[in-house]
Design a protein around this nucleic acid. Structure first.
Length: 645
RNA sequence: GCCGCCAUAGCUCAGCUGGUAGAGCACCUGAUUUGUAAUCAGGGGGUCGGGGGUUCGAGUCCCUCUGGCGGCACCA
């Protein structure tokens, strides 16, 4: 009997029935057999040592491919689990999946692990790799498996079989060496030696069993694993690079902002940081005005009664900062701007002619976020949204959403961020409204996105409790994904707060409300762009755009002139007249990531010129003062103004 | 909020097994007037996050609180 395997390039080859992928690889070349980690049979994972008994499409998975890395990482998780169980008897294993760049394993153990244990664990892992233990796939009877795992005290594993694996699906157990085994879907390497040693334990964390904070807390050990040492090193280097971009670090170094313990999750914006803020805000105002928005401002603190009406007291109380006055009133800082905007909408009578009404606010909101959620500028308790609500008729939704997507794309691009994808967050488990309402609203967003030429990626259950949403997932300069920008179609709040307009038919109608933000919050967005640009802002955003640095005091008067000229041209300029060498000044301002340095000495003073040096470059340009001011003023224009020119 | 780790000068960090603190940068003063990534010399600066305990003696060990970091949970 022979079987026929079809390779990815279309070639067909015949093999003996029961041939293993490893034997197939070996038959092709020895070096290939060394690098292969698993196979795919008709697209299904297949262990290298598992006999093949049917004709199939066949694919070998190499260790340095994306699929191959997944296999390696999964094996690394198992090796970790075995090492931990050997070193710390009594520890139960739970789950150990592959994640981006690595893997983790969750353990249940009375005593806490410490990162000090990592060295020992890694050492044991290496021993397991050196021992080259065979890994064998076994198919078990469901009840026997449950009984077995319960019998050896691995109750979590038993629970997985009982609760998670659908009846009828094969229960596979992988045996690693003689005694150690783990319930696993596979595939796995033929033996532990093939894993190699390009792995490293990274961090220790708490995690809840099955992701539910009501469940037992487990101890999670994260690790990373790669095809070879070189890849591992590259990965570690990448982490270092990301660390250098950390907005918290750069924020301090560049004197942009700070935070302190008396105001957790609150930002003290320093002069330079606020300059950045105001530049972005001014830009957004122009973009919004051009897109037909009006700007409003609503109160910071409102009575409890108001929040009861809006539904926030019921649904959002835990996140609200509530205070009581001496007269006994209960007030809350606004956690959102939407109810306030509805009040403005309701003021006076609105007609269908007023729609769509696009109402924007740089709205300062306060939300009590759980302490563990706080993270620099990315997650704060006081923040300013570039918020707007579009009041419109149902038949205007698609058009408005499409217009919004176009606007948001353009804004994001202006900040050097490219869109990775748009996510459509669909109905969450806990939600308001009937299913047909969700069918309708989800379809609206989907169609609107398509109308704008975008195919959203569905994020199941990720919607708000009152409406589905589109979230913009942006990629930064080093490929990290950030969520900035969202739009939601809300039928609930206009209803609750009684917003209405007079239609063409003279009757009162309920408008739909589109909640939308392009940046999200100014705080978070500034955090994102600090990391995106690694602090080296493009000229239009740089808090200080140009430094005028003197060589000797002879040039002081001229330098003041130069600074004045640049300032008059609209540039943000600082003067450095210190009695220091130019090399010192250049170094210092370069480290501070100032985009331009205009060096002036006696020669420049005499010729009324500047020697211009750009950040990152070594060349200098000798330019006339007036010419430089004019050219730089144009160069420093915000992207929208540059386009309009 | 939960789990783990961490907290020493403005910043980055050193301080072995307990014997009352140190470096570099920054800052201040003086000298130097300098041509594109660090001029030299001197000086000031820390109740070692707060509180409690063990000890003859605590930056160091223990407890506790506060905050930070990494995850988890949360994220309109």
């Amino acid at each position: 009997m022979s079987i026929s395997l079809t390779f990815p390039d279309g070639a067909k080859r015949d093999y003996e029935d029961g041939v293993t992928p490893l034997a197939v690889a070996d038959g092709i070349s020895k070096s290939l057999a060394k690098k292969v980690v698993a196979a795919k049979l008709d697209g299904q994972w297949w262990d290298l040592t598992r006999p093949i008994a049917q004709n199939a499409k066949f694919e070998l998975v190499m260790r340095d491919s994306a699929d191959g890395l997944e296999v390696l990482r999964h094996d690394a998780a198992h090796v970790l689990a075995q090492a931990v169980q050997e070193l710390f008897p009594g520890t139960q294993v739970t789950i150990g999946p592959v994640v981006e760049d690595g893997f983790y394993y969750d353990f249940a153990r009375e005593e806490a692990f410490s990162t000090d244990d990592f060295e020992r664990i890694e050492k044991r892992m290496r021993e397991i790799v050196d021992a080259d233990l065979p890994i064998a796939r076994e198919v078990w009877d469901r009840d026997e498996a449950i009984a077995h795992f319960n019998g050896i005290g691995e109750t979590f594993k038993a629970q997985i079989i009982d609760d998670i694996i659908p009846p009828g699906e094969a229960i596979t157990v992988y045996r690693q060496g003689t005694d150690w085994k783990d319930l696993c879907r596979g595939p796995h390497l033929p033996s532990t030696g093939r894993l190699g040693k390009a792995f490293k334990l990274m961090k220790l964390a708490g995690a809840y069993w099955r992701g539910d904070s009501n469940n037992q807390q487990l101890q999670r050990i994260y690790g990373t694993a790669w095809a070879d040492e070189k890849q591992l090193e590259e990965y570690l280097k990448r982490l270092e690079e990301a660390e250098k971009r950390d907005h918290r670090k750069l924020g301090r170094q560049m004197d942009l902002f700070h935070m302190q313990e008396e105001g957790r999750g609150m930002v003290f914006w320093h002069e330079k940081g606020l300059t950045l803020w105001r530049t972005i805000e001014a830009y957004m105002r122009r973009r919004l005005e051009a897109a037909g928005y009006v700007e409003v401002r609503t109160p910071q603190v409102l009575d409890r009664v108001f929040w009861e009406k809006s539904g926030h007291w019921e649904n959002y109380r835990a996140n609200m900062f509530v205070c009581e006055t001496v007269e006994g009133e209960e007030l809350s800082l606004k956690p959102m701007n939407c109810p306030g905007h509805v009040q403005i909408f309701k003021f006076g009578q609105k007609s269908y002619r007023d729609l769509p009404l696009r109402m924007a606010e740089f709205g300062a909101c306060h939300r009590y976020e759980p302490s563990g959620a706080l993270h620099g500028l990315m997650r704060v308790r006081a923040f300013t949204q570039d918020d707007a609500h579009i009041f419109c008729r149902e038949d205007q939704i698609e058009d408005e959403v499409a217009r919004f997507i176009t606007l948001a794309n353009s804004v994001h691009e202006d900040f050097g961020l490219t869109r990775d994808h748009i996510a459509l967050g669909t109905r969450p488990e806990q939600r308001a409204g009937a299913d047909d309402f969700w069918d309708k609203t989800e379809a609206q967003l989907l169609n609107a996105a398509r109308k704008a030429g975008v195919e959203p990626v569905i994020a199941e259950g990720d919607g708000a409790f009152y409406a589905p949403k589109l979230d913009f997932q942006l990629k930064d300069a080093i490929g990290r994904i950030w969520t900035c920008g969202t739009i939601q179609n809300d039928y609930v709040l206009p209803e609750r707060l009684g917003a209405e307009y007079v239609g063409e038919d003279g009757q009162k109608h309920r408008p739909v409300m589109l909640h939308r933000a392009i940046l999200g919050s100014l705080e978070r967005f500034i955090g994102v762009i600090i990391e995106n640009y690694a602090g080296s802002f493009p000229l239009w955003l740089a808090p200080v755009q140009i430094i005028v640095a003197t060589i000797t005091q002879d040039a002081d008067d001229y330098a003041r002139d130069v600074a004045k000229t640049f300032k008059a041209a609209g540039l943000r300029v600082e003067l450095d007249l210190r009695n220091e060498k130019v090399g010192y000044k250049v170094r210092e301002h370069s480290l501070a990531k100032i985009p331009l340095i205009a060096v002036v000495g006696r020669k420049e003073a005499e010729e009324r010129k500047v020697a211009l040096r750009r950040l990152g470059g070594e060349a200098q340009q000798a330019l006339s003062l007036e010419g430089a001011a004019e050219a730089l003023a144009v160069e420093a224009l915000a992207p929208d103004l540059a386009r309009a020119r």
